[in-house]
Design a protein around this nucleic acid. Sequence first.
DNA 1: TTCACGCTTGACGCTTACGTAAACGTAAAG
DNA 2: CTTTACGTTTACGTAAGCGTCAAGCGTGAA
Lengths: 134, 134
Amino acid sequence: MHNSRVPETWSIAELAAEYDVTLRTIRFYEDRGLLTPERRGTTRVYHPRDRIRLALILRGKRLGFSLDEIAKIVDMYDAEPGEEGQLVYLLDQITHRRQELEQRRRDIEETLQDLAEVESRCHADLNALRNHKA
Amino acid sequence: MHNSRVPETWSIAELAAEYDVTLRTIRFYEDRGLLTPERRGTTRVYHPRDRIRLALILRGKRLGFSLDEIAKIVDMYDAEPGEEGQLVYLLDQITHRRQELEQRRRDIEETLQDLAEVESRCHADLNALRNHKA
DNA sequence: TTCACGCTTGACGCTTACGTAAACGTAAAG
DNA sequence: CTTTACGTTTACGTAAGCGTCAAGCGTGAA
């Protein structure tokens, strides 16, 4: 049994495979300051922190946030405690993001309801067609 | 009292003001086939149908869909009953969109929870700071 | 040594979703 | 008649988010 505190690391290809993105994408995120892998020589070495951040980035993307917005959000997660002003700013940001997300959730609910209506209309039309044939 | 069946119409500027988008945006959506206003001479005249579609487009945008995806979704709403194959295709699309939306909803829930954690960490840090001062 | 493999850094290209003039038409108001 | 308001098209610009070469380096196996 090997030491469980051995900090696991990944290559860029491993991360890419795991999250189904291209190497180009991962390097691009680094370019934009979203990831900061270690370097061994020229080669990138990714630590758990990077892996988590990548997951957060991709979730942010699914939610339709821009990379700039994602950067702000992700940086909130591992922000240093810092001074009071910083903390207050952070709390403010959180409130803001929460409102955005809740708006999105409302949009989703509405859209799901609309889809349900269209769906039942479809079923009705299908039945009409089939009864007509019969 | 004037006839309630008078079909109400809007100018491009009215729609833009109502939904807080630019004229350019509305014309761009027309370019992409998402809106098809009537023309009186060269001037665009928007009917209730266009207004509804614009609202749907903007909701789709808030949800992070591309205009191409939005086009498909919006067209589902006022699709003609059509033939059976078409209806089946529609139902298939609905299932697909629903799954996407449900994934998004899950992402939102997770993010909201994460935000809640960051928030309480902030509050804790703030308290620590203030107790330290006192 | 030679080869392949995986990684690296440019650097150009492309699509999306508009912004931003430029230049013009039309119609009412002063 | 000129200004003002509102509309039009055409067209170039741009930021985001990568795709796609090209060319080179380092390492281990044959």
